[in-house]
């Protein structure tokens, strides 16, 4: 069916944070300039193994995100490649001006890795639940913004980020996710993956919402609606060609993200549509709300991030096709 998809969608055998750490160690084995910079969440984010392997290449700044980002900028100016690893909220929101001016403005080469994306922050609640991190990072000129759907893609993205000069933001969750991809699937940053073909509506998703999109496709199939599912793992720069082709061929688009619908995937896709090929479109995501404590399932339900929500909005978009 696909060059990408695993035969069955099962819970992964490794946690996303372990995938990150393994990928970073692999990159660091090849490139002596890779440095792990932390601000006191090494246990939570799972990079202890990196520290054991490369004790001299792990720098834990303590609880000071603004300084840590600036420090990364200085290291980068010396030719090092810092991977700065923190909760998504604090890596972006707390250190925004430092990311903007100490990194991006001066063309540094720093990779920011934000953990606990959106509702996956669960019990840490509203203070630690980033629904705005991708939006903030999209506003930084030249910043590449990525959200991988599973561990296979996460590892590839870390390798490619390490090998490409520039500032990157990648957000992910720490626990196990549903494995979407075959181990040998190939990805390219900035190039969307069309996971399933479809003719009536395109569902464009990122991160944990890719699996929900695949489930929504089955719900829609029962109703006789054919959905194309696209993994838009790179939110910026957006693969506009893929978005436009989907709009031309399906005539309706739904986006799905574990993020505020303001500033994230939905907004960037809708901008591309309205400038190039306007079609009925709907956005699934958090509708301008703060986070709160709860299980991931509960939070996905109350913020409207389930396959059911995607299917409902897909039908709505399809129903609007002839009214435009």
């Amino acid at each position: 069916m696909s060059d990408y998809l695993a035969e069955r969608f099962l819970l992964d055998t490794i946690e996303m944070r372990a995938a990150y750490c393994d990928a970073l160690i692999a990159a660091a084995e090849e490139n002596p300039d890779i440095i792990d910079v932390e601000s006191d969440v090494q246990y939570s984010m799972g990079t202890r193994k990196f520290k054991e392997r490369f004790p001299d290449r792990t720098i834990n700044c303590g609880i000071m995100e603004a300084h840590a980002v600036g420090f990364c900028g200085g290291l980068s100016s010396m030719g090092y490649i810092p991977f700065y690893h923190a909760f998504g909220t604090f890596a972006t929101r707390r250190a925004f001006d430092q990311v903007f001016l100490s990194l991006a403005y001066q063309n540094m080469n720093v990779k920011i890795v934000g953990g606990d994306a959106g509702v996956t922050a669960t019990a840490n609640g509203g203070t630690h639940m980033p629904f705005e991190d991708m939006g903030l990072m999209r506003l930084v000129p030249g910043m590449t913004v990525i959200e991988p759907a599973d561990s296979v893609m996460y590892k590839t993205a870390i390798r490619d980020m390490a090998n490409t000069y520039g500032n990157y933001y990648i957000r992910s969750c720490r626990r196990k996710t549903i494995k979407i991809y075959r181990e040998d699937a190939k990805f390219q940053i900035g190039k969307a993956n069309v996971l399933t073909q479809g003719t009536d509506v395109a569902i464009i998703a990122c991160g944990i919402m890719v699996y929900q999109a695949l489930l929504a496709r089955e719900i829609l199939a029962e109703k006789g609606v054919s959905a194309r599912v696209i993994d838009m793992h790179t939110i910026k720069p957006l693969d506009k060609g893929c978005v436009i082709k989907a709009a031309e061929e399906c005539g309706a688009v739904v986006t799905a993200e574990n993020h505020n619908i303001i500033g994230g995937l939905g907004e960037t896709v809708c901008a591309a549509l309205s400038e190039n090929h306007p079609v009925p479109s709907e956005r699934v995501g958090v509708e301008d709300k703060f986070g709160q404590v709860g299980t991931q399932e509960y939070l996905m339900e109350i913020y409207g991030l389930t396959a059911k929500d995607i299917a409902r909005k897909a039908l709505l978009a399809v129903s609007r096709k002839n009214k435009v």
């Binding site: 300084h67 600036g70 420090f71 900028g73 200085g74 100016s77 030719g79 090092y80 001016l101 403005y105």
Partner: peptide, 25 residues
């Protein structure tokens, strides 16, 4: 010019990264 500055308070963190990098090199 080694480092861009202008948003006050950021230079010393950048300088610490430069100093740490010089030491590692």
């Amino acid at each position: 010019v080694d480092i861009s500055t202008g948003s006050l308070g950021q230079g010393l963190s950048l300088a610490s990264g430069v100093a740490y990098g010089c030491r590692m090199r």
